[in-house]
Write a protein that binds this DNA or RNA. Structure first.
Lengths: 149, 149
DNA sequence: TACCAATAGTTAGTGTGACAAATATATAAA
DNA sequence: TTTATATATTTGTCACACTAACTATTGGTA
């Protein structure tokens, strides 16, 4: 394969990732979900793992610490998440969904699954598996030290 | 396939796209390329198509107009690109690479191809074709009106 | 105890992305 | 010609990504 052909994937990958996020965000907006796509990712992970620290959560969702700080700021301003001081370590917080946060996740989860499915029209379950395999391989190829998950 | 499984792809897609951009950006930086990954995309397209308007270029690289305006601002501040008033249409500009811009593209092109290849270790040419097919299908599934390319 | 490296989180600066609105100009219709 | 509409670009705002620098705290070690 020539070098020229190889350079296309980064363009298509970026373009598609942006389209997926943009499509979801538009649906979120027209449904008055009151959260962004990235805020949803954080809420969803908090609903599945209680009392995470920000560092633990950052590793889970693969966002860096400054980004996560701001997302938590926004979510707590909206009343979905609380920072509770860690009982032993005064540097750190335990993150909890509020009541409002829990019911937000419960109500949005099925709607968001529907939105996500739209991307897979005309594609097979086998395509889905291949896609995940290739994405993970690329990720690991570029992920110097640690081996990704 | 259950709904639960389906939701993973958007996470992996976003994570991988960010990793690809991040990896390239780090290489750009350690090589003192003096441009960002997105600025490179714009430069490269200008080197292949002279005298584009900003609208034409935006459609080519799939960036929206405000984003492109700002990238052109940065590239012209760095001396790589010039806005030349369109001879007939006073609303619009024709974009040109400067001498410096041309030599920048010439010198960076091979280095960037090498950086881009790193992602494809352990993957086959067939994977590459499948990957492009799936990315394009997803894009078109979500791209309401027009059919994308 | 005193020092020091590591860790948790925040803040600031720059670049990018999406979206809405504003400005200037062009073109078509009345 | 006047008016209406469409097009090209810019500006403003909010959100996110990445880097670097900073504060506070912890834990190990001399």
């Amino acid at each position: 394969m020539t070098q020229e052909q190889y350079s296309k994937y980064s363009f298509l990958l970026d373009r598609t990732a942006r389209k997926v996020k943009q499509y979801a965000q538009q649906q979120f907006k027209s449904g008055d979900f009151d959260v962004t796509v990235d805020q949803w990712l954080v809420l969803k992970n908090l609903s599945e793992n209680d009392a995470l620290s920000q560092t633990e959560l950052a590793n889970l969702v693969f966002k860096d610490h400054p980004t996560l700080t701001r997302i938590i700021d926004l979510l707590s301003k909206k009343g979905y998440v609380e920072r509770v001081p860690h009982p032993q370590d005064r540097r750190s917080f335990q993150l909890h969904l509020t009541e409002t946060g829990v019911s937000k996740v419960t109500s949005l989860r099925p709607e968001i699954h529907q939105i996500r499915e739209k991307a897979w029209e005309n594609l097979s379950p086998h395509d889905f598996e291949e896609f995940k395999r290739i994405l993970n391989t690329i990720y690991q190829n570029l992920n110097g030290e640690s081996l990704g998950q």
